[in-house]
Computed example of a mutant assay.
Amino acid sequence: MRTDASSKSQLMVRHTYSPAALLRGAVAHHALIWQMITREIATRYQGTFLGLAWALITPLLLLGIYTFVFSGIFKARWPGGENHLDFAFALFVGMILHAFFAECVNRAPSLILGNPNYVKKVVFPLDALPWISLGSALAQLFVSYLVLLAAVLIIHGQLPLTCLLFPLVVLPLVLVALGISWMLAATSVFLRDLGQITGFLNTALLFLSPIFYPLSALPQNIQPLAMANPLTFIIEQSRNVILQGQLPDFQGWAIYLALSLLVAWLGYAWFQKLRNGFADVI
Results as ranks from 00 to 15, higher is better:
Met1Trp: 10
Arg2Phe: 10
Thr3Asp: 08
Ala5Thr: 12
Ser7Ile: 12
Val13Gln: 12
Pro19Met: 14
Pro19His: 10
Ala20Met: 13
Leu23Asp: 10
Arg24Thr: 14
Ala28Tyr: 05
His29Ile: 06
His29Met: 14
Ala31His: 14
Leu32Arg: 11
Ile33Arg: 04
Met36Cys: 08
Arg39Val: 01
Arg39Gln: 15
Glu40Gly: 15
Glu40Val: 08
Gly51Trp: 08
Trp54Arg: 04
Ala55Trp: 05
Pro59Ala: 05
Pro59Tyr: 03
Leu60Lys: 07
Leu61Met: 13
Leu62Thr: 11
Ile65Val: 15
Ile65Thr: 07
Tyr66Pro: 01
Thr67Asp: 08
Thr67His: 11
Thr67Met: 07
Ser71Pro: 01
Ser71Asn: 00
Gly72Ser: 03
Ile73Ala: 00
Ile73Thr: 10
Phe74Thr: 02
Lys75Trp: 04
Ala76Met: 06
Gly80His: 06
Gly81Phe: 01
Asp86Ala: 03
Asp86Thr: 01
Ala88Gly: 03
Phe89Ser: 00
Leu91Lys: 02
Val93Gln: 07
Met95Trp: 08
Phe100Ala: 10
Phe100Thr: 11
Phe101Trp: 09
Ala102Leu: 03
Glu103Gln: 15
Val105Ile: 14
Ala108Gln: 09
Ser110Met: 13
Ser110Leu: 14
Asn115Ala: 12
Tyr118Leu: 15
Val119Thr: 10
Lys121Gln: 15
Phe124Met: 04
Pro125Ser: 08
Asp127Val: 08
Asp127Pro: 05
Ile132Asp: 06
Leu134Val: 09
Leu134Gln: 15
Gly135Thr: 02
Ser136Cys: 11
Ala137Cys: 12
Phe142Val: 15
Val143Arg: 00
Ser144Met: 09
Leu146Lys: 07
Val147His: 02
Leu149Phe: 01
Ala151Thr: 05
Ile154Gln: 03
Ile155Ser: 06
Leu161Tyr: 07
Leu165Phe: 05
Leu168Met: 12
Val169Asp: 08
Pro172Leu: 05
Leu173Met: 07
Val174Tyr: 12
Ala177Tyr: 02
Leu178Arg: 02
Gly179Tyr: 02
Phe190Val: 06
Gly195Gln: 10
Gly195Val: 03
Ile197Pro: 09
Thr198Trp: 03
Gly199Leu: 01
Asn202Gln: 10
Thr203Trp: 11
Thr203His: 10
Leu205Glu: 04
Leu205Asp: 03
Leu205Trp: 07
Phe207His: 09
Ser216Pro: 00
Ser216Gly: 00
Leu218Gly: 04
Leu218Asn: 12
Ile222Trp: 14
Pro224Ala: 09
Leu225Cys: 05
Met227Trp: 08
Ala228His: 11
Thr232Met: 04
Ser238His: 04
Asn240Gly: 12
Ile242Asp: 01
Gln246Lys: 14
Leu247Asn: 07
Pro248Val: 12
Pro248Asp: 07
Gln251Ile: 13
Trp253Glu: 04
Ile255Thr: 11
Ile255Gly: 06
Tyr256Ala: 07
Leu257Pro: 06
Ala258Ser: 15
Ser260Lys: 01
Leu266His: 04
Leu266Gln: 14
Leu266Ser: 14
Trp270Ala: 09
Gln272His: 09
Gln272Met: 15
Ala279Gly: 11
